[in-house]
Simulated assay, not measured.
Amino acid sequence: MVPLGLIAIVTVGDILAPPEVHLGPFLAAAPAVTASFAGPRTTACVGALAVLAQAVVAIVRTSLTDLNHSLQITALIMISVCVTFFAYLRERHEKQLTQLRAVAEAAQQVVLRPLPRRIGPLRIASVYMAAEAEAQIGGDLFAAVRTAHGTRFIVGDVRGKGLEAVGDAALLLGAFRAAAHRQADLPSLVASLEGTVSSNLDDPRAAVSATAAPSEGFITAAVLDIPDTTSVLHLINCGHPPPLLLHEGLVTALEVCEPAPPLGLTEFAGSPFAAQSFPFRPGDTLLLYTDGVIEARDDSGAFYPLAQRMAALGTGGPQRLLRRLREDLLSHTLGGHLGDDAAMVAIQRVRSE
């Protein structure tokens, strides 16, 4: 209605104005405004209506052959054609963005599958937060695989961003889901993951040229095995932030004695992977996370105190814990925006009934 009202006002004003006053050029604003929100068809219709209004003004005031009005009509036609073309380009671009966003959301569902709320004796919750508002996928990853004797988890962070990081995350998650069932122990599983990541990074087809520098990509990851029948968990940490364990209101970081290098750095791996066991009793809650959580800063530059906040907000189950942590994390950051992608997985062992 705004462009139509503008055409009506300018037309009436131009007809009633003194002979030396010409308001016709303002009619060009009508198709220009329409192109900012409507499609090419609507823009073209408004432009045609503006040209018709200019012709009516010319007939009423002088004639269509008057030089001044002829030039105004010609200029208005050219402007209407231009803005209609721009409206067409904008509409096509919006369709492409919509399609890309739909593909990204579908890719996220395939690569980063939502975790079930219950696996065996475990209650689970997960959340993924992108640093960019329009982003739907990134290099942070997590997954869970059910085995005959328990559940295996992985949480990781790919070095870098963009499609390359997404590809590396998909590669690691696919390898984890395939190998978690076959490998009898946790060190063999992590060794298999290391082989998959290293072979991909060493792919000669990925090199730009023979003189290109070797790839510096790697993936930090924490891989866990949580048995069903014993109150322990087994952990191998490959350069990832340590999981946090909430037990009776106290939060402890599960620091392993022999941390492994990140996946993909085979030249630094001097010894086989070794798993370390930690108590994981009924009622305990375990939090897996990526560095985007603990590296989030407030306006003063202070990092987010995850362990302290988990101890304060950790009651009520994993779903409530992650919901409250997410809200608290966003309120901590400057403007509610994260500087990096962040992911969290909360796992609670159910008390026996």
Rank of each mutant, 00 (worst) to 15 (best):
I154T: 03
E105D: 11
G249D: 07
H337F: 09
R159P: 02
R324W: 07
L235K: 04
L306G: 06
K95F: 03
I347V: 15
G292H: 02
D168C: 02
V251A: 12
V208I: 15
V293R: 03
A169P: 05
R123N: 11
S192V: 00
V10M: 04
Q308R: 15
E295F: 01
V350C: 13
P116A: 04
L313F: 08
T98A: 15
G249T: 05
A191R: 02
A253V: 06
A311Y: 05
L173F: 03
V2T: 11
F86W: 14
R118W: 01
L245M: 14
P116E: 07
A342R: 05
V81K: 02
I77T: 13
P305N: 10
P282Y: 00
G156P: 04
I119S: 11
T42Q: 13
P204H: 07
L23T: 07
L171Y: 01
R92Y: 00
A133Q: 12
R326H: 13
M78K: 07
D168S: 08
A274W: 07
V293H: 06
R326E: 13
K161I: 06
F273N: 01
A135M: 06
L6V: 13
F268I: 04
S271T: 14
R323K: 14
M344W: 10
P116M: 05
L16A: 14
I79S: 06
L186Y: 03
V33Y: 08
A342M: 09
R123M: 10
F278A: 01
R92K: 11
D157W: 03
A28D: 01
L334V: 02
P40M: 11
Q99C: 04
L254E: 01
D202F: 08
A213R: 13
A30V: 08
A130S: 15
L306W: 06
G174T: 15
Y304V: 01
A75W: 03
A30I: 06
G317R: 03
M78N: 09
V256C: 07
N68I: 10
R309P: 05
A133G: 01
V127Q: 11
G162R: 08
P40Q: 12
V190F: 09
E255V: 12
V223P: 00
R281C: 09
M129L: 14
G174E: 12
A269T: 04
A135E: 12
G264W: 08
T220R: 03
I154Q: 03
K95W: 04
G339F: 03
R101S: 15
L100T: 12
D203P: 00
P18H: 14
R309N: 14
E94V: 08
R41A: 09
P259K: 08
S352C: 11
R309T: 04
V12C: 09
G138S: 13
L244N: 06
D341V: 05
H332K: 05
G249P: 05
D140A: 07
A17G: 12
V190N: 03
A130M: 09
P282V: 02
M1T: 15
D225K: 03
A213W: 00
A8S: 11
A213D: 08
Q136R: 15
L27N: 07
P241F: 09
G336Y: 06
C82F: 12
A169C: 07
R297N: 09
P241M: 07
T147G: 11
T196A: 14
L338I: 00
T290E: 05
D203G: 01
L100W: 02
P204T: 05
V2C: 02
A144L: 09
